[in-house]
């Protein structure tokens, strides 16, 4: 046990570390149910976190039902081959013109996408 002196002295490096070690050993556990309960009460009261606690898993089957209904409705109006042709015509242009402007536009778009992706990743990792 350390003796507390009144005169001004200086600890050396080892003594300082030993003092912190002593404090660490004396550290009484602060685990209380009341603290946990108050955190959980605040989580439940917080709208942002209360949404997370709802059992979303139970409603996931609705996604599959919606997908099935949407697909059936789509194919009831359009033939599958026609739909494919229509999509490919819309996506693939008949002629491709490579001009400085198009290269500039493509580079700019790619650059913007890369910056957005980097920004999103940084935002996620930041606390």
């Amino acid at each position: 046990m350390n003796d507390k002196h009144t005169d001004k002295q200086q600890l050396d490096s080892n003594q300082l570390e030993n003092l912190f070690a002593q404090a660490r050993e004396q550290q009484t556990p602060l685990a209380g149910d009341e603290f946990t309960a108050s955190v959980m009460r605040r989580l439940s009261a917080d709208k942002r976190t209360a949404i997370l606690s709802t059992p979303r898993r139970a409603w996931r089957w609705l996604d599959a039902v919606g997908l099935g209904l949407g697909t059936a409705a789509c194919f009831s109006f359009v033939q599958p081959t026609e739909l494919l042709l229509w999509v490919s015509n819309a996506l693939l242009p008949e002629t491709v013109v490579i001009s400085p402007l198009s290269i500039l536009a493509a580079t700019g778009t790619l650059g913007l996408l890369a910056i957005s992706a980097w920004w999103a990743t940084e935002g996620q990792s930041r606390i």
């Binding site: 350390n2 003796d3 507390k4 002295q9 600890l11 300082l16 003092l19």
Partner: peptide
């Protein structure tokens, strides 16, 4: 900070 803490806690010298 180490020297500052060593001086501050000097009263706890063994």
């Amino acid at each position: 900070s180490k020297p500052l803490l060593q001086a501050q806690l000097g009263a706890w010298r063994e």
